[in-house]
Simulated scan of single mutants.
Amino acid sequence: MYTVIAERDLDEAGVSPDAALAIYSEMVRARRFDERALALQRRGWMSGYPPFRGQEATQVGAVRAMAGDDWLVPTYRSNAAQIARGVPMSDLFLFRRGHAEFHSGHDRPVFPQAVPIATQLPHAVGLGMAADYRGDDSAVLCLFGDGATSEGDFHEAVNFAGVFDAPVVFLCENNGWAISMPAERQTASPTIAEKAGAYGIDGEHVDGNDPLAVRDVVGVALERAREGDPVLVESLTYRQGAHTTSDDPSRYREDAAAEFPEWRTADPVERYEDYLIEQGLLDEDTREEIRADADDAVDRAVERAEAVADPDPDGVFDDVYDDLPPELQRQRDDLLDRATGDGGD
């Protein structure tokens, strides 16, 4: 297990004090976003939401390892990674309210988040292969959960990457559960990382609650990917909350302490706080200032999202066909009639 926290000081970990605090700030900002998003969904402000509490260290640490031109290919639970990569929080809120995903735009290569399980993996390989064909010095970081490894897209994507030397790092956030399905019911392999060997690439493990370890492992993996050696990284973390806001984990999951060792279920934000305090970088005043800044950022994002008018109902038909087929035209007309109260029951 590759870990840094409590075993190495900042110099040994190869991170500056400013960078160490920046990682903490991004983790706190992501945590505050997640808490607000969950509260907003519960009062009907937006549609279903997938909490990521407990996975901030993996996502922020991984993004901190990326170069400016690298592609981030997220899944639906990758909000912390997207925020750390520069996607405005207001865009993420708006996406959950039915708007186009990148409402205000951003200046980093970020692929639209995938809601269908594992469909983003072949896309990530395509991006990597395209970069290789063009001679770009960029790599692709693709995030997915342990449940995605049970889909055919996972195997096809990793196989393609191995055969064609695509510059891709596959980052599996193994949070222990694919909805209600525990990892041991998904695969007989002792680990997900060792699946890499079947496709001729290397697999790595990392303590997913340690942002510095994740940064190091993913950073090395990205450099290897740029040289034509794709890597599968398994980040061992834990989903503290529900799979989505429509899920009740108490129906299938026992107490976390009985399922996994403490290092895997420990809160990554609190754990990293303790480390920074031990390193003499974080005191109570600084911690409160960072939390206040995060709350302000989330408040502004909510305000920006609420200032955007609701999308037109018929917008769902835009950007599908240049000339709308008769059947979809009929459906569009029916939708508009129902929306205006002029037709239907």
Results as ranks from 00 to 15, higher is better:
residue 3 T to Q: 08
residue 7 E to Q: 11
residue 10 L to S: 07
residue 11 D to Q: 14
residue 12 E to R: 15
residue 12 E to K: 12
residue 13 A to L: 09
residue 13 A to R: 02
residue 13 A to P: 07
residue 13 A to Y: 02
residue 14 G to F: 03
residue 15 V to R: 10
residue 16 S to A: 08
residue 17 P to M: 08
residue 19 A to Y: 04
residue 28 V to I: 14
residue 31 R to W: 03
residue 32 R to I: 15
residue 34 D to H: 05
residue 35 E to D: 12
residue 35 E to Q: 11
residue 36 R to G: 06
residue 42 R to L: 14
residue 46 M to L: 10
residue 47 S to F: 13
residue 49 Y to V: 02
residue 52 F to P: 01
residue 53 R to Y: 06
residue 58 T to P: 00
residue 58 T to L: 08
residue 62 A to Y: 01
residue 69 D to S: 12
residue 71 W to D: 00
residue 73 V to R: 00
residue 77 R to C: 07
residue 78 S to I: 02
residue 79 N to V: 05
residue 82 Q to K: 09
residue 83 I to P: 02
residue 94 L to E: 04
residue 101 E to A: 07
residue 101 E to N: 02
residue 102 F to V: 02
residue 106 H to E: 02
residue 106 H to M: 01
residue 109 P to M: 04
residue 111 F to T: 00
residue 111 F to W: 11
residue 112 P to H: 11
residue 113 Q to W: 06
residue 117 I to L: 14
residue 119 T to M: 09
residue 127 L to C: 01
residue 128 G to T: 03
residue 130 A to S: 04
residue 131 A to S: 10
residue 134 R to E: 10
residue 139 A to L: 07
residue 140 V to I: 08
residue 142 C to A: 14
residue 152 G to F: 10
residue 152 G to D: 11
residue 156 E to P: 14
residue 157 A to S: 13
residue 158 V to Q: 10
residue 161 A to S: 04
residue 162 G to V: 02
residue 166 A to E: 03
residue 169 V to R: 02
residue 172 C to W: 02
residue 172 C to F: 00
residue 179 I to W: 01
residue 188 A to Q: 02
residue 190 P to R: 14
residue 191 T to N: 12
residue 197 G to M: 08
residue 203 G to H: 10
residue 207 D to L: 09
residue 211 P to F: 07
residue 214 V to E: 06
residue 217 V to A: 07
residue 225 A to V: 07
residue 227 E to Y: 00
residue 227 E to H: 06
residue 228 G to N: 04
residue 229 D to I: 06
residue 229 D to S: 06
residue 235 S to D: 03
residue 238 Y to H: 01
residue 240 Q to C: 00
residue 241 G to K: 13
residue 243 H to F: 08
residue 243 H to V: 09
residue 244 T to D: 13
residue 246 S to K: 13
residue 249 P to H: 09
residue 250 S to C: 05
residue 251 R to K: 13
residue 252 Y to E: 09
residue 253 R to F: 10
residue 253 R to G: 13
residue 257 A to T: 11
residue 264 R to F: 01
residue 265 T to P: 00
residue 267 D to E: 04
residue 270 E to R: 07
residue 272 Y to G: 00
residue 279 Q to Y: 12
residue 279 Q to T: 02
residue 280 G to S: 15
residue 281 L to M: 13
residue 290 I to N: 07
residue 296 D to S: 03
residue 304 R to A: 13
residue 306 E to D: 15
residue 307 A to W: 08
residue 308 V to P: 08
residue 313 P to A: 01
residue 315 G to T: 14
residue 317 F to S: 09
residue 318 D to A: 15
residue 325 P to H: 13
residue 327 E to W: 09
residue 329 Q to R: 13
residue 337 D to F: 02
residue 337 D to M: 04
residue 337 D to E: 11
residue 338 R to Y: 10
residue 342 D to S: 09
residue 343 G to Y: 06
